[in-house]
Amino acid sequence: MKVLVAVKRVVDYNVKVRVAADNSGVDLNNVKMAMNPFCEIAVEEAVRLKEKGVATEIVAVAVGPKQAQEQIRTALALGADRGILVEAEDVQPLGVAKLLKAIVDEEKPDLVILGKQAIDGDNNQTGQMLAALAGMGQGTFASEVNVAEGSVKVTREIDGGLQTVELKLPAVVTTDLRLNEPRYASLPNIMKAKKKPLDTKAPGDFGVDVSPLVKTVKVEPPAERQAGVKVADVAELVDKLKNEAKVI
């Protein structure tokens, strides 16, 4: 079984982002970039499927700038077999989904695993859109994935608890936090990854128009919340909540 896994290059999880002075976006100069944490979980799940003998080949795909090669190399170091980078900047989720659909048509994977959202745009759209365009079932926000013959059972994190669905293969899965704990790449595997094949493509190669459909007019910092007061003890806290804030 072939697994396609999508990875995105984003600002590192630990970086506190700042809005650019001209309000055009966030300041990405000299900021550490990394693989989106949900994509790390997607890669890990694919690698585990391979270790279990369920998956035979893992293809890692990224849509992003030239430097997104680094994130594909990371996926290769973790266990993916080869990579495809579609070089394009600031592609919106529908555009990414169309590119992935074109790659799905060529590669014919049985399972596509993506992160449920990227921590930059917080859109949470691409996996669902890909599934729609490819006519596949989707198991979003997955906390457990069990592949069987011709189908996959996905347990999903929903607002009220957990829901399990069964999907015909091929299908799309998007990962939630509890699906697994991603491993770190070992040095020998990082070295080996440098020799694994990585194809570079352009959106035009797939005949996909990736011009943005929603325009970002400006980006601003959120309203600052002022720090309040420290109370001395529980009695003062209860008094403030009752008589000053009047919330209890």
Binding site: L94, D122, N124, Q125, Q128, A132, P212, V214
Partner: peptide, 20 residues
Amino acid sequence: TTGKNFLPRVAALLDVQMIS
């Protein structure tokens, strides 16, 4: 989790970019 699950699918079927 219901809206986030199905609405991007609707947007893709209608060929529009969703706003989350």
